[in-house]
Amino acid sequence: MLYREALNRAIDEAMEIDSDVVVLGEDVGLYGGSYRVTEGLVSKYGEERLIDTPIAELSIVGNAVGMAIGGLRPVAEIMTVNFALLAFDQIINHMAKYHYMSAGKITLPMVVRFPQGVSRQLAAQHSESYEQMLSAVPGLIVFAASDVNYAYHALKYAILSDDPVIFIEHELLYNKKGEIDLNTELDPFKARIVKKGKDITIVSYLKMVDDVMEAVPEIEKQLGKSCEVIDLCSLNPIDFKTLESSLKKTGAIVVVEEDHKMGGYGAQIVSWAAEEMFYSLDAAPLRIAGADVTIPYNRRLELASIPTPEEIKARILAWGAENGV
């Protein structure tokens, strides 16, 4: 099953369970979604529940907030996070705040989902990542789906839960293959241990998890150490428990993120490690992040602006040698 099919299945099942679930966004209905996530759903549930909106992101999220107030469970699709910037007023001032500032009288059971990140030469205005901003907004749950199983379970949970959820996907993951495990219940707030290890904790999320996993065999071989790879999954709240038990074991932490390093999300993890886990640290924490530049169009430059498996490997090897890891 493909990642986008898993998302489709999650939406489909949620719509089946609850007739209050509606999907809105640009091209989500008759067209089937820009990344084919909502493919086939309009023929099953009708245009009333798969609402094709104008290209007006502010209204997509703003209307979803109103739909949630009016008793529906809207799932808003924004074509990419870059366009979601037009809706940030609605996301931050309305979606995130109504529950708190009404002292819990208003609940907003809604999801805003979008892909983000560097794909293939989509250039400056279609390649950004904004998990760092969204995770900094109290009141928003932020999930980042890096694999098929999590994509299915977490999205279904998000749609059927009563809280506003930002659901982050990645453009390069839509055709990733995987299986859904229907026998095990998945806690979407729990970080996923992708690979067990005992010497280095590597924390990542979204597409970078795959890049880390590609780099790990060579890192382990050359350093003679084993890496524990953790996919954060829930970016807000963070599953510090899983991180803590891993870091206590390894004493060394590396955070890999695709976004710009300045003000990037990984800084939060490193700050936590320094503040809360200082005496467990046996090496200086390492952050591998994107360059602080606008994402360029040219493929060579584009790849140089984000971490690649080669860069992850080279940086961790150099860091390992320097820190006696």
Binding site: G66, M67, G70, L72, P74, N93
Partner: peptide, 21 residues
Amino acid sequence: DAIVGGQIPNAVGCAYARKYK
């Protein structure tokens, strides 16, 4: 709502919910 005009899209969504229901 203290964002000038911010409540208007919310009302639109709520009206959609009323019509749907």
